[in-house]
Nucleic acid binder design. Structure first.
Lengths: 250, 250
DNA sequence: GAGTGGTCTAGACCACCTC
DNA sequence: AGGTGGTCTAGACCACTCT
């Protein structure tokens, strides 16, 4: 049984979260079953209760377990592993840190070329304008889960050249934020479609399989559309969720 | 200066959260300004650091402050940090007013019966509990576009009896609001699925056609889940969009 | 009554940031 | 160098749940 690596730089509570996450995936704890109590985990891994609670907080935030007051922490449905549609962030930014699954981004193509009509319209540019495109595939645990093409006005795209995002090592959102472009408003449309041939090929699917298609336009504070993408997602691999919350107004 | 009421049953960390929240509202700390450090708050209110951190966690979860590693907690800027998701109003209810299209709701079934496991789990009720269900089809311009089943705790459903919603003449959201139940938080999961037979039948589709499946849990201010639904949508007929906007708050 | 999580204390060491 | 939050320990008391 893997214990806590005391000499590792990784915080204990994260190590424990990984361990429990793996146990859940391995079916050591069934869905709906209670995982060991906080005190039990303290004993098992020789950790203090604060640390264990930090772990449980993290697991709950990932929707992997659900804490029930005075009864324990229960395993949620593991398929509910989700990429949250973070509204303030990009739609599909990697949640690689929180979920223990390996997420790999592969860049297929990027560069400047004439924008397809769909993209030009979304970006409020004249049809026929040229722009920057970035085509990527994201895989989870080696399975291709998502294909996307972003289109940007040429000047926006030029900020990306030389950045790690073009090697799949950085999120587009991070790269654009570094250039001062933050999302102020966004509109996303979601549809279920039969997989188009080329996308089916990339996602390792039969043509015609159901896919989630997400079209997104992001605007900055001045209202300028600076990023449009069309993304096809295998929702059998990735759960797409939208969390909404009313908030207290200061 | 209001301190911590030691004899109050209200947890200290909540009391402190209220105090800081009030200070922010009163403008004691400006937007973007740093609030006192954790150790400073410990001194000011004579609390231990764990308690103060619990407070800050709560405030961050309400998006009132933003914690920056090793720099402090900053009052959130409502312009950039707070977003209104139109999804709070119900994914599927806004369309009627905006588009001039004729929307007809047909109620197939409603009543009290044992909840399916999926619904019981979503509503945080024991498996096997009974609950209220409401199955509906919505058509646009005569074309069936959406099939949904809502499940609610029995006491919530009982508020609906005699209401026009059960004749398809009122939105569920309206009916529940009238009973004082408003959506405070919601989580929705979106997937593309092949149409199940029964749904395909209702939506006038071939079995296996791509459909959008939306699962939704709504919670009130106390965090209680009061409505769960699973909905299948013909996204070729209905556009499903998520709009996010920075709130313009002076 | 035993077990659980909720809350709380009073310390500690560290990496990192700002000065 | 001093301050900050990140992490961690080793306890404690309580209200509630389960049996």
């Amino acid at each position: 049984m893997g214990g806590i690596a005391r000499e590792s730089p990784e915080p204990y509570y994260q190590q424990l979260a990984r361990i429990i996450e793996q146990d859940i995936r391995d079916g050591k704890y069934a869905v709906g079953e209670r995982i060991p109590s906080e005190t039990e985990l303290c004993r098992l891994y020789d950790l203090s209760r604060s640390t264990v609670r930090e772990t449980l907080r993290a697991l709950e935030q990932q929707h992997l377990v659900k804490m029930v007051p005075r009864r324990g922490a229960y395993v949620s449905n593991p398929r509910t592993e989700s990429w949250t549609l973070q509204v303030t962030q990009g739609f599909l930014e990697t949640q690689s840190r929180s979920s223990g699954r390996a997420i790999v981004t592969r860049v297929l193509r990027w560069g400047v070329e004439s924008l397809p009509e769909l993209a030009a319209n979304a970006l409020d540019l004249p049809v026929g304008s040229s722009g920057f495109h970035l085509e990527r595939i994201r895989s989870m645990d080696g399975q291709p889960a998502l294909h996307s093409i972003n289109w940007m006005p040429e000047d926006v795209g030029s900020h990306l050249i030389g950045k790690r995002v073009l090697e799949g090592q950085q999120s587009l959102n991070e790269a654009l934020s570094a250039s001062g472009l933050t999302v102020h408003a966004a509109r996303r449309e979601v549809a279920a479609v039969a997989a188009p041939r080329e996308v089916a090929h990339y996602l390792d699917l039969k043509e015609g399989s159901p896919l989630l298609r997400i079209d997104s336009v992001s605007r900055d504070a001045s209202g300028r559309a600076f990023d449009f993408y069309r993304s096809h997602v295998r929702s059998d691999i990735v759960t797409i969720s939208v969390d909404a919350e009313a908030r207290a107004v200061p």
